[in-house]
Design a protein around this nucleic acid. Structure first.
Lengths: 197, 197
DNA sequence: CCGTTTTAAAACGGCGCGTATTGTTAATAA
DNA sequence: TTATTAACAATACGCGCCGTTTTAAAACGG
């Protein structure tokens, strides 16, 4: 085994084609701008991307997985946040980012993804790990921090508080209701007075 | 036209078979206890109910509609509530009822129904009219009542407040997270301090 | 009896599923 | 160079369910 092979953890045989991978995700994004996840088909992706169906089935277990990969790797879906002086401001930053990610076309697609995976327990878990969990955990961390610093009351339930912050957004997302850009502010205005010390 | 025909709005031709209707909804309920809405098929319902496919297609536009009909006509899904002395107690009653309706097997099915209809605008509207709207409106009415009576602050946004009450429930429903029987109480404990006068 | 409508049953073409097969290509190992 | 290994595109397959159409019987009112 060569030094290069050791360094890059290379294996025998033809390596995975990065061009095909990009072609598949690109084709999926283009198709999703004109149809829904439900109406999407593996065959259509393969045809548009100029790849074999087997290549898709080899690397993704379902069309929902392909869609998740296509959407979540887009710029704007990384969850990097500016540090905030207060817990309240940190919560606002996080919530506003989620609203920005979900209030437009991408939001419709994410709603369709959540829908598509409902009868697949593993897929639901995968979705939560790759999108929901880190955002909820970040909120929980901020609530906890606010409690310890005295900014918030010390008798609130962290998990339920996170639910009251994230819940309304997902509720409106799944209900097909409009979600304006300032929706995060509205939710925080409703929630904050109840948790402030 | 006879008097009876006029009274009961009878029409010419063979009347709709109530037996077939019941057979279809019964078969759907039985099938849904072993599979998901997504895996349900019109053909399977027709076979199990002993009816023709055409009979189903004549009266329902989709399998999601059949499922909604089958679930929402069950006992326990009527939204009748005891009158409450305070707005807060009224809100608790309403929210607790929703949790009771959605925290078990039926909740999973409702989540699947919401999922199934995501790419059908009319179906989404129909779902909201037949389930979500009346429950949200009831909550909005109670919040408004509490504001006017001085029980709640007068500067809160009704719509957003309803979102913070219903949102967490739908959020957990669609996330596949556990929702205990006392979840309504948890949400109210989190929300109430922020809206009380 | 006649016109109308619903019904169950059966058959239809079509689509996308997930798998299998084939021959080619791009890498490593000897 | 040669052998080995694995990914690749292309193609074909059987299958299940779709939504529609056709047929003949059944259930009503006039």
């Amino acid at each position: 085994m060569s030094a290069l092979a050791q360094e890059k953890d290379m294996k025998k045989g033809r390596p995975r084609s990065d061009a095909s991978k990009r072609a598949i995700l690109d084709a999926t994004r283009r198709l999703l701008s004109h149809t829904t996840v439900q109406k999407l088909s593996i065959e259509a992706i393969a045809k548009k991307a100029g790849v074999g169906k087997t290549t898709i089935y080899r690397w993704w277990p379902s069309k929902a997985s392909v869609a998740m990969d296509a959407i979540f790797t887009q710029p704007g879906f990384q969850n990097v946040l500016p540090s905030a002086p207060t817990a309240a401001e940190g919560i606002y930053n996080q919530l506003d980012k989620v609203v920005a990610q979900l209030n437009g076309k991408n939001g419709r697609i994410v709603a369709q993804i959540i829908s598509e995976i409902q009868d697949d327990y593993e897929a639901v878990e995968n979705f939560h790990k790759s999108f929901m969990q880190e955002r909820c955990f970040e909120l929980a961390k901020l609530v906890d921090q606010g409690m310890k610093s005295g900014e918030f009351r010390d008798d609130i339930d962290i998990e339920t508080t996170v639910d009251t912050l994230m819940g309304p957004i997902i509720f409106r997302l799944m209900s097909g209701l409009v979600m304006t850009e300032d929706y995060a502010e509205k939710v925080i205005t409703a929630i904050l007075p109840g948790i402030k010390a």
